[in-house]
Design a protein around this nucleic acid. Structure first.
Lengths: 125, 125
DNA sequence: ATTTAAATTGCAACTAAGTAGCAATAATAA
DNA sequence: TTATTATTGCTACTTAGTTGCAATTTAAAT
């Protein structure tokens, strides 16, 4: 169970993520793939790709889910190692290629962390 | 416009946040205040308290909104200066009293940041 | 090739968090 | 006390995301 077959739909979605640190929200993808693919299919493919470590997801400040294929991450190692950025003006959201330091917290076993940075992108400043 | 009156409902909600860094999700609050207060009222009071800087909100990895009144934050200065923690086992969510370093990103004007750390709390390790 | 098994897709209906309109009520100001 | 303004409850709505199921496509096994 769980092998992602390279169907037409999967390829179409994967192409969007190729060679970019740009993130896409589920809503944006559904809109962009409207007519080509059902929204259920979009979410299911995203789930599968994430399960296999090909893409990763995170939440923005509105609670929307975003998906990206970080170029600097080794395959299957997308798990929360880098921060994300969202422009408050144009909404553009992407992976950032910087290392972040996660503080140690006593009496806590920290397993993951997700840092969302917000502000203005280069286009919007 | 915008002055939060200290009504019975507002007091009830504020009491939950007093003297604790514990966070509450909207869902949890609605459940806990069931019978005392309508869910619309809960959300509206939370909004108003946040507008006035008395509490602050953040999202978890499921996209749920959490609210807290961080004890170490000056009034009105709750904006994303500290990280939050969520236990994957018991769900307990709270503010962490540590400073985090937000990296500078060239060509970006960073205005805010939200760090959610996940793992196991002291009770669940 | 043909059959068989398993994964994928579309569709419609659903779930759940959060929001909006509006009338009724409660709180403050005049 | 009256007038004004904010708050609340209720119902209905919006929207992101999910589920069940039948139909279809893909790949594997004869």
């Amino acid at each position: 169970m769980g092998i992602v077959r390279k169907t037409r739909s999967v390829d179409t979605i994967l192409e969007l993520f190729e060679d970019t640190d740009h993130a896409f929200s589920g809503v944006i993808l559904i809109e962009r793939l409207n007519g080509q693919m059902n929204k259920t299919t979009v979410y299911r493919i995203l789930d599968r790709l994430e399960d296999e470590g090909i893409i990763h997801s995170f939440q923005d400040q509105k609670g929307l889910t975003w998906y990206a294929k970080c170029q600097s991450c080794a395959s299957g190692q997308h798990t929360d190692l880098h921060p994300h950025f969202q422009c408050r003006s144009c909404g553009k959201t992407s992976c950032l290629h910087v290392k972040i330091t996660i503080p140690l917290i006593r009496n806590h076993r920290i397993e993951g962390a997700e840092l969302l940075m917000t502000g203005l992108c280069d286009q919007c400043t």
